[in-house]
């Protein structure tokens, strides 16, 4: 019984960390979604600040995946 629970939660852990890891790849791979100038921030075109923003989002998502996996997934 308890073994089943562990196996189930292990699987959902793997799915969760996989999704967290893959999101930045998908968002940035859809290049046409950010090939534009507007809206600008302080004169900086969307193309630049949007990808800059993804550096923070990627660190947050990867960081969460690493913390979850380190805590519950073994080494």
């Amino acid at each position: 019984m308890s073994q089943n629970v562990t196996a189930m939660s292990k699987r959902s852990l793997y799915v969760t960390v996989a999704i967290l890891t893959i999101i930045p790849f998908i968002a940035l791979a859809i290049v046409p979604s950010y090939v534009r100038t507007n809206p600008e921030i302080g004169g900086l075109p969307f193309f630049y600040w949007y990808q800059l923003l993804w550096l923070f989002l990627a660190a947050a998502l990867f960081g969460l995946a690493a913390i979850l996996y380190n805590k519950y997934g073994g080494e």
């Binding site: 550096l55 660190a59 990867f62 960081g63 996996y69 380190n70």
Partner: peptide, 13 residues
């Protein structure tokens, strides 16, 4: 190692 790598995108700023 995993934790350090996951937070490195911040370095890219």
């Amino acid at each position: 190692l995993r934790l350090s790598q996951s937070l490195l995108p911040l370095y890219g700023v």
